[in-house]
Amino acid sequence: MSEVLEERPSQGVALLRLNRPEALNALSLSLRRTLAEMINRLGNDGETRAIVITGNEKAFAAGADLVELMSRTVHDAAFREARVAWEALDACRVPVIAAINGFALGGGCELALHCDIVIAGEGAKFGLPEVRVGIMPGAGGTQRMLRAAGKYKTMRYALTGDQIPAAEAVAMGLASECVADEEALPHALKLAAKIAALAPIAVGSIKEVVKLGADASLDTALLLERNAFQLLFATEDRSEGIGAFLEKRKPSFQGR
């Protein structure tokens, strides 16, 4: 059975379930390759408008596969291969939502930090425990947490490897919302369906501008926003959206 299961819960929404329950969904190289292939395909198929990634009730993903890491050497080609999933998520054009129950540790936390929206069950645990096994985060954990939570929270948790409860993760800016454990996936799917019904070009533009603007000066980021805003006036969806509002009807966005 595949290490990532794909489902279509509603129109325009894809659900990807990490499927290594025997290893708490540890991110093996084969799982990363499969996830990268699916993200690349779904992000470019013209039909998928939102992607939800989840695990199971025990773990979103408990980190990298330590059995694989034990045999890795400093110049191992596996380091390059391991980045394929992160590169696919970075390049994905559609919003990606993480629905998290249980552990999101190490690479699992970094996977969540690569997503656009993070919905955490109240029992979820985040963290970067790599220092406890003599290594450090290597898929953006220190830098993405730094940008989301600031220097002092990042140092507090990256230097100790302590776990972060879901409510604290929300307060730190590592997660969007904390909900009851049984509501994490349903709520994420509801948000995905809501996004999928909106104008995909506008949604993609918002994602791009937020992502690029985060590391730009305010003047540069505002310029990016203005340019993207004006370009949307060339789309049919703009006419449909405003027309539907004025006519008091539900819009039908086609992505044109």
Rank of each mutant, 00 (worst) to 15 (best):
L24H: 15
L24R: 13
N25F: 14
A26G: 10
A26C: 05
A26H: 12
A26P: 02
A26Y: 11
S28Y: 11
S28E: 08
L29N: 04
L31Q: 07
L31M: 13
L31T: 05
R32K: 15
R32F: 12
R33C: 03
A36C: 07
A36H: 09
I39G: 08
R41L: 09
L42D: 00
L42Y: 14
L42W: 14
G43T: 04
N44W: 14
N44I: 05
D45V: 07
G46Y: 09
G46N: 09
T48C: 04
A50Y: 12
I51E: 03
I51P: 00
I51R: 08
V52H: 05
N56W: 14
N56I: 04
K58S: 07
F60Y: 13
A61Y: 08
A61I: 00
A61M: 07
G63F: 15
A64V: 08
A64C: 05
D65H: 09
L66M: 12
L66Q: 04
V67A: 14
L69P: 03
M70Y: 13
S71K: 10
R72I: 06
R72L: 11
H75N: 09
D76A: 01
D76L: 06
A77E: 10
A77G: 06
A78M: 04
A78G: 02
F79D: 06
F79K: 03
F79Q: 02
R80T: 07
E81Q: 12
V84Q: 11
A85G: 01
A85E: 07
W86I: 10
W86Y: 15
E87F: 15
E87S: 08
L89V: 04
C92K: 08
R93H: 13
V96M: 05
V96D: 01
I97V: 08
I97Q: 02
N101R: 13
G102S: 08
A104F: 07
L105H: 11
G107Y: 15
C109M: 10
C109W: 13
C109S: 04
C109K: 03
L111S: 05
A112S: 02
L113I: 06
L113A: 09
L113C: 03
C115L: 04
D116L: 07
D116E: 01
D116K: 07
I117L: 13
I119V: 12
